[in-house]
Design a protein around this nucleic acid. Structure first.
Lengths: 214, 214
DNA sequence: GTCATCAAAATTGTACACAATTTTTTCCGT
DNA sequence: ACGGAAAAAATTGTGTACAATTTTGATGAC
């Protein structure tokens, strides 16, 4: 099972993504291709691919023959982004409550355990991964492969903006408790409850983010 | 107001998008960079950018050092895609019912008129644009800029797969009637109704698509 | 005959050069 | 001094060459 090595353009993209999320660029700032290429020690060819990815993710605007300009999300925009993510999560949870199989429920229970274990060991990076796995199972259980893909994609796009709050430890205990409630709702096939819980689960994160930033 | 000229990479992307939607490539087929570059009469540099855009849109998979492989959506996938689009439209409509301003309602009425006029003149290409404008107003009226962007983006991604059914003339009359109903629901600020109407509006399109393809 | 190994070919990845375009500066007329 | 046109500089767009990697095919051991 050979993992696909990520091309340099993707690596550059991730670094740029991080820089934008850190607020290292002013809103509307032009991302100079030659300067950044030199900074990253690569040529303009892969850098340009990274810039297009950045624009495609909504973190920059690519204007032909003019350049690509960063779109620094302001607080309002961040709230909007998390609101959309929350709604996607909620929809996945609602569908999953109807369609989830017993095998998937088993996987979900295991994933919840792995989350708890990682949390107990204070291995927050692993917790991040296990948490993503937990949610991923719900996406898949929704029974709409495209929705699962889009939700994962959105999760990935929001990732750089979640780093801060994800490692706020006191938040994690609450997160775990919410996982348990979501799991219970899915087991009970209580779609409205699962939907509301999933929505609230992420809604809170945006509030926490607000506290950390503001 | 100088429109930004689209770069060749974007043009190539649109052509590839069309080819995939037409089913010109088999699922999993590798998109040979040199062959396609020659075919489109460009070099590999812009073609590669187009391929990455294609992968980013979910129409292909880009595997480093291996190539990009088309992901021909099967019927199930198409239904899933339209289902997601329908839900986004529904959400926008629900939010819009709460938040839409009288100025936006005026715009919406005008947009609906322009749709009817285009339909009356059997100018289907203009109808397509006016129809997109009508829906775009609702996206904006939802009051979540990010959601509006994402919905527009999704609409754009689905476009190549809608061409067929959009020009099925008998469908258009029904579409117009649904526009009127949606407009009425928004004017009455009846969120549940607006949501359901918007969802049904697009749901039907996927069914029509089924008829045309199958 | 099957498998492993290695060479050859094909393909993707990237640097670089130059073309096309935009932005900045200079210079001139008023 | 102020605009405006033209030249110069800077920046993006793309073709091409070559490097890195993967795939294919040949060869030989067992």
């Amino acid at each position: 099972m050979s993992r696909p090595k990520t091309a340099t353009a993707d690596l550059i993209y991730e670094r740029l993504e991080g820089l934008v999320a850190e607020g290292r660029f002013a809103d509307g700032e032009r991302l100079d291709e030659v300067r950044l290429a030199a900074e990253f020690g690569v040529s303009r060819t892969p850098l340009r691919e990274a810039l297009r990815l950045l624009a495609n993710a909504g973190l920059a605007e690519f204007i032909p023959n003019r350049g690509t300009f960063v779109r620094q999300p302001d607080f309002t925009r961040l709230v909007e982004m998390f609101e959309v993510m929350a709604e996607l999560e909620a929809w996945c949870a609602r569908l999953a409550a109807h369609r989830i199989t017993s095998a998937e429920l088993l996987l979900l229970r295991q994933a919840a355990s792995l989350c708890e274990r990682a949390l107990g060991q204070k291995d927050y990076h692993r917790y991040y991964d296990e948490n993503a796995a937990f949610h991923g199972i719900i996406y898949d259980a929704a029974g709409n492969g495209f929705l699962a893909e889009e939700t994962r994609s959105m999760q990935r796009r929001l990732r750089p903006f979640r780093q801060a709050q994800l490692f706020a430890v006191d938040r994690l205990d609450r997160s775990m408790e919410e996982h348990r409630q979501i799991l219970a709702a899915l087991e009970a096939r209580d779609a409205p409850k699962a939907e509301d819980l999933a929505r609230a689960h992420l809604r809170i994160q945006s509030v926490v983010y607000q506290q950390l930033r503001g």
